[in-house]
Design a protein around this nucleic acid. Structure first.
Lengths: 80, 80
DNA sequence: TGTGAATAGGAATTCAAT
DNA sequence: ATTGAATTCCTATTCACA
């Protein structure tokens, strides 16, 4: 089921640094969710996730905060 | 020169939606800066830019707001 | 350092199929 | 609608070099 999987994705990226979609797919499978990279890619798109440069200078996936007001999308800020 | 190119990159992504690094390289060349995708990739990394889902449901490059305080980098917000 | 050419690796999409 | 397999496309990095 899609929504529990997407919820799991958001949880996973908070708990650990996920560098690739394959890695995320592996984590999901380790949590009993059978899924491929293609689906992870679609989930990432729906969740409007991004790949950001982490502190260690390594790329990792991150979630966007929900924002319902009108906004531009060429300026992004990282939050604590 | 690297810094004027990176400044141009930030300007370009504000002016128009850039979907790929090749497209960005083309724009830079159209502005007299001879550059390849490899360098654009490195610039994007240094600038901590991200690829976000734009309003039209199409991916585009966007800049991160400067943030010097300590912060997590798994939660991102789009700004107006 | 900074860069390009080439490549490897990663991600988005197509094309079924359900 | 949702997904996987395969493919295409895109990006990060390697390797050489200025």
């Amino acid at each position: 089921m899609k929504y529990s999987r997407q919820a799991m994705i958001l949880k996973l990226i908070e708990e650990k640094d996920i560098e690739t979609q394959d890695e995320l797919a592996n984590e999901l499978r380790a949590n009993g969710m059978d899924v491929t990279q293609a689906t992870v890619s679609r989930d990432i798109k729906e969740l409007r996730m991004v790949k950001v440069l982490g502190k260690a200078g390594v790329y990792k996936y991150a979630a966007m905060e929900r924002q319902d007001a009108v906004m531009s999308d060429h300026l992004i800020r990282v939050f604590s």
